[in-house]
């Protein structure tokens, strides 16, 4: 199978940069603090009340999972929004457009490299998420739902970053657009899902959310591709 050269190149450059190790370290440090703080709270509560609340252990998983998802929402736009604008700022985008690579190859190369970064981040935090297997209380079904949601969100946020990077004239505007859209969309989604949490329609709402995010990802990738096509065919953006 031929690897996408853009993906290979971005992986190579990422390996040589301190960004990933620092990102992984920082993320895991924050999750560790959350984890230990919650354990401390449980033991303190136990000392004060003389009883151990089992639900407190479940909170560890919810905190870590929510914290990780929040990290994704906060970091992903900033990481992905520079995907195309960096190439432009380094005067490489024009040269890439002159090669045999079409806009689809460039966009997908960028998408896979962003997904690699976000996927690596998820993998590094698995030990914290795996604590749920010590205490139990969360079914495999909800675990799969979480990972599926995380995965689809990675795809959507990467696509959104690429689209904003292609549309906006500079990185600052692209970042603002990406954050604005992602916070608004996820705010509405979470509000809707939490409202339906105890409802039997919750699962349908969740599936619909995934489908919506998937479709929006396709839209963003199409926008990213169109902006690159316009760039080559010479219409000034």
């Amino acid at each position: 199978m031929n690897e996408n050269p853009i993906w290979t190149k971005d992986n190579m450059l990422s390996d040589r940069s301190l960004f990933m190790p620092m990102l992984i370290s920082f993320t895991n440090l924050v999750l560790l603090i959350l984890f230990i703080a919650n354990l401390y709270y449980i033991s303190l509560n136990g000392l004060q009340t003389g009883e151990i609340r089992y639900a407190g252990f479940l909170q560890i998983y919810y905190l870590v999972a929510a914290g990780l998802f929040l990290f994704l929402l906060l970091l992903a736009p900033a990481i992905t929004v520079s995907s195309l604008s960096t190439e432009e700022e380094e005067h490489m985008l024009e040269l890439l457009l002159e090669t045999d690579l079409d806009s689809r190859s460039i966009i997908f190369g960028k998408l896979f490299s962003e997904l690699s970064t976000l996927g690596t981040l998820l993998l590094s935090t698995l030990p914290f998420l795996a604590t749920v297997f010590i205490y139990g209380g969360v079914s495999n079904y909800y675990l799969c739902l979480y990972f599926l949601g995380y995965g689809i969100s990675c795809v959507f946020l990467s696509s959104l970053g690429i689209a904003c990077s292609g549309l906006a004239k500079n990185s600052v505007y692209a970042t603002i657009f990406a954050y604005g859209i992602s916070f608004l969309l996820y705010g509405l989604l979470f509000y809707g899902l939490f409202s339906l949490q105890k409802n039997s329609y919750f699962i349908y709402a969740t599936i619909l959310s995934f489908i919506l995010l998937g479709l929006l990802s396709l839209l963003c990738l199409t926008i990213g591709r169109k902006t690159l096509d316009k760039r080559y065919n010479g219409r000034n953006l």
Binding site: K9, L13, E90, M92, E98
Partner: peptide, 15 residues
């Protein structure tokens, strides 16, 4: 058919 050499070529510094 074309090979283009721009006035200012960018680079990937770590490559």
């Amino acid at each position: 058919r074309l090979g283009y050499v721009p006035q200012v070529m960018g680079s990937y510094p770590k490559m």
